[in-house]
Design a binder for these strands. Structure first.
Lengths: 196, 196
DNA sequence: TGTACATCAGTGAACGCGCGTTCACTGATGTAC
DNA sequence: TGTACATCAGTGAACGCGCGTTCACTGATGTAC
């Protein structure tokens, strides 16, 4: 496809990529449809052919975010020791790292009302990410964690801890920890103590 | 002061009250200076005499938020049993409740970049809120928690847990817990298990 | 006690800006025959 | 294999909107004398 092509060819994906860059750079507050179009090298009216409005684009972005989030956790688990605690820790570490490395995206995924909660793909990708955590807690417990109240509490406790660490870290509220700089060990310690 | 008064008399405080209502109603994304002025019953150019821009107003709002946040935790502690665990739990419960009861304000305080981080009053009010938690953990440990690394980790663990619970709860991600509805007991359980 | 005047806190009209949306259009693509 | 035509994906100008900001102004207040 030459640069002069009237038709883009794959504007939908180009827009998604542009939107992701736009989100990462401007944050959720500075995110605009016009900015995405400009970044994709297309007139600002063009996106309407692919996304109804900014929120629909953001919903698609969140879906991709959850998928990459799931992959990041699974990749980390594959590199980790096979014992249940190490597996849960690996997922937790990847959770925190994904958040700090993709702040506005993470914020879109977990802290925004803009993505369409009724979107099936979003619900599915979210559920899949959640599944990584549930699976790790289940293995550690030796049962199906979500099937009983103590198990659900274990899931909630682990999740709240990693999520809390991630959000506090992003806001710079945990800067008092470990001035020496071995951040990973410190995080690992915090995550492990949340386990059942 | 009659309704016809040309001068408001205490527009600064009226604006702060209006801004708080505006924030609660519209959220951080829909917050505008014009909206605050309108709500305060004043022309939209008037706020400029009291606040340089929206961020300065939001900074003042965040300061007030942290002060009320601190009070909420202290009030809860005063009603609770005197033993150290109950004191820490009380602070944690108040933490979570404040968050869910004041979502946009809490979001402004902990999740936004808009308040001026260099503002001395903001830093002080934030530090005071932090102090409630540090004090409770210190009492429980029997030492000055922030003076040693294990102590700091205990502070971080408790904080991350309550903060994680608060943010996940706000996003509706903990709905799988306790369908029976005894939410407080469930929260208390989660908070207590994070303690040293 | 009264008057003059500086200062302050508000008004309201005007401006420019970037946004989303609309619309008539144009160029490319795919399909029917 | 070629032609006609419907459809689709893009353009770019125009619009209205709400925003923050500016500015000349006006009304109230406080102070000097």
């Amino acid at each position: 496809m030459t640069k002069m092509a009237y038709h883009h060819g794959d504007l939908r994906h180009a827009l998604l990529a542009a939107a992701e860059a736009e989100l990462a750079e401007k944050g959720l507050e500075g995110f605009t449809l016009r900015g995405c179009a400009k970044r994709a090298g297309v007139s600002h009216a063009a996106p309407a052919h692919h996304f109804k409005d900014a929120d629909e684009l953001l919903t698609a972005l969140a879906v991709g975010g959850f998928q990459r989030f799931t992959s990041a956790m699974r990749d980390r688990q594959r590199l980790a020791d096979l014992n249940p605690r190490a597996q849960l820790t690996a997922a937790g570490m990847a959770y925190v790292e994904f958040a700090t490395a993709n702040r506005p995206l993470f914020n879109l995924m977990f802290g925004s009302q803009r993505p369409d909660t009724k979107d099936a793909a979003l619900a599915a990708s979210k559920e899949e990410a959640f599944g990584v955590l549930v699976e790790a807690v289940s293995t550690l417990r030796g049962d199906t964690a979500m099937a009983n109240e103590p198990g659900r509490r274990d899931v909630a406790a682990c999740w709240a801890t990693v999520h809390g660490i991630a959000t506090l870290l992003m806001a710079g509220h945990l800067d008092f920890l470990n001035p020496a700089g071995q951040r990973d060990d410190m995080l690992r310690g915090l995550i492990e103590r949340s386990m059942p």
